[in-house]
Design a protein around this nucleic acid. Structure first.
Lengths: 340, 340
DNA sequence: ACTGGCACTCGCTACAGTCGAGTGCCAGGA
DNA sequence: TCCTGGCACTCGACTGTAGCGAGTGCCAGT
């Protein structure tokens, strides 16, 4: 495909103008606003080529051009440069995140911050349990046949589960169970616990065997099988900016998708280290989101990834700006977690 | 105000028709669909009176009538009878709620159930800490100068907070602190803890005094001052039913309000025992929600109230149905919590 | 290879006209 | 006194027409 430099410049100009004005952009307006050094007619010829190649399209005959998903993709990959954050934005990030008292607080502040800075819907995944280690497991007697199992992960996440025991267990036994469990599981990565839990049952003293078996079941369920991932969301009101022009008039599919944790996890939870992923329109695997784009990345202390975060908005979004913001926020959050 | 029975019947008919058709209803259609036993002309006269009294209004001259907020209020107070749930709905409630494994699970299932049954936005408040008692407080050493404070309430709620200690504290001291704190606070209602916490500091052995002071500060902050209320939300996609006719075309204010926990708490958290509260349109204290109605009630085991739940939707909603559903769900949840 | 010019397309807006649902009012009747 | 049928009126919704203008594609000229 013969896309010379000028044609690429034209595409870049179209994307930038359309993103900021939200109106199809014509050849005349384009040469006026950008120093392209050629006449509208020439630009029209270039546009014809770009349209043929599928990078732009006309909503109707005799309207200006609008980028296609493919056009945005080319723009993101080759025509844009990550926008450096303004000092004001940097300050906003710092101000917003200092003073968080616990993990919940960090996550909530982060998601609101992201929504505010990008003016899009923001999504933040809690540090994944699968990638965490056990810091401590606590057994709290609720009644003689009931325990509350509390797991504290090194990331600060706390998960709890009520356990119905097969029979009454005296307090001393609970102490023993707690000790046995912590000796075996403390500092283990969650993904490596299943064999350890198995060993716990096998090595348990005969008297504690039945109780330990029950506990083991719940442990596996809670920590491994249910893959207890959590998500925080903010900024849904931003979907209504751009007055129904984006999302082809209906927010419904978007809102539905946002209610499905599974969908959100797929969107932001599968990022390789230190890359920023951009999904544009129909590149998305969910039909409900074919009118939307997602910018996401992983975060964590240092180079390890504990979870994902990102923003979701119309395909007509400020990709360079949002990419920069998502990265910056992810880095700050990573540093914050490293301190704990 | 002279509203005889027939005028009330006309108002009821208008509300019912408008709710189901979403179109202004005229005198002719009204006599056709309801057995009013009088002619359209008579109905028109009644309508004129109802309009004068502010119960209905005309969107434009020569359109049908639409209930006003005041009209809905009269309808709810005097003209409607709580609709009994269908057997299918009862079954849905039971099926949905059995098998919940912990409090989070209960709350999430409940809010989704409510959203599904009413086809509105559902809101469920976690059992309020202010109305809970302490079941157990656990101190988990993270490092020599850091503790994780975990509070387990009788309602099953678990709150945690990281505590920075003034200096290193040996493991034995932690054990002592844990014992002292639990002796004093276990089974205390959270609202009654401040003097107890104060006493804890005063009665602490000299060696533990500084640490206990720090813990006390965090305890008060976490348990009392921050009034750590939580909220679950579901069904926002339902706002898009009725294709932008409801909410005068803009979901924005509604979505913004739904992001504010404080607003939601005010909406559903202030219910007196065993009443169902209905807020219609501008009865609402938040400007953003003046186009919406809220049906809410409290829930809890027996007659005690632990939290609120409810639904939010357009003023044009099925009040009798939603009231019935909200009540039924609240009762089931109360029973469920009573079992734990 | 670029440019100016020109004819053409077609969505948008304004305007006029028609239609019909719905109303308010009034005179007559139970 | 209350209800009813009839009638004139209002006004939003829809339709069709016309003019405007942004934007295009094409072509001949440089």
């Amino acid at each position: 495909m013969g896309l010379d430099d000028r044609k690429l410049a034209v595409l870049r100009a179209i994307v930038e103008d359309y993103v900021s004005t939200q109106e199809p952009v014509g050849s005349k307006a384009l040469v006026e606003r950008h120093q392209l050094g050629v006449s509208p007619a020439t630009v029209r010829n270039d546009m014809a080529v770009l349209e043929e190649e599928g990078y732009i399209r006309q909503p109707h005959t005799s309207a200006g051009r609008v980028p296609t998903d493919r056009g945005y993709r080319l723009f993101v990959d080759r025509l844009s440069r990550v926008k450096p954050l303004s000092p004001a934005e940097r300050r906003a990030i710092e101000r917003f995140l200092v003073g968080a008292v616990d993990l919940d607080d960090v996550v909530h502040r982060t998601v609101r911050l992201l929504a505010q800075l990008t003016r899009q819907v923001a999504v933040v995944q809690y540090p994944s349990l699968a990638r965490s280690s056990v810091r401590h497991l606590e057994l709290v007697p609720i009644s003689t046949t009931r325990l509350m199992l509390v797991m504290i992960a090194d990331t600060g996440r706390v998960e709890q589960r009520l356990v119905e025991l097969p029979g009454p267990v005296p307090a001393d036994d609970v102490t023993d169970l707690r000790r046995l469990i912590n000796e075996k599981l403390a500092n283990a990565r969650l993904s490596e616990t299943p064999p350890l839990v198995q060993a716990l049952v096998e090595e348990a003293p005969t008297g504690l065997r039945p109780t330990m078996t029950t506990l083991a079941t719940v442990l596996l369920e809670t920590l491994v099988e249910r893959h207890e991932e959590r998500i925080a969301l903010a900024g849904t009101a931003n979907l209504t900016r751009g007055g129904l022009l984006d999302f082809q008039g209906s927010l419904r599919p978007i809102l539905e998708a946002l209610e499905e944790e599974v969908v959100l996890l797929k969107l932001i939870g599968e990022t390789e280290p230190s890359t920023t992923r951009v999904l544009i329109g129909d590149e998305n695997e969910f039909d409900n989101l074919r009118a939307a784009s997602v910018v996401s990345t992983g975060y964590g202390p240092g180079t390890t990834i504990l979870g994902g975060l990102g923003v979701l908005g119309p395909t007509r979004m400020d990709y360079p700006g949002n990419i920069a913001t998502v990265r910056a926020v992810a880095r700050y959050v990573g540093e914050l977690l490293a301190q704990n």
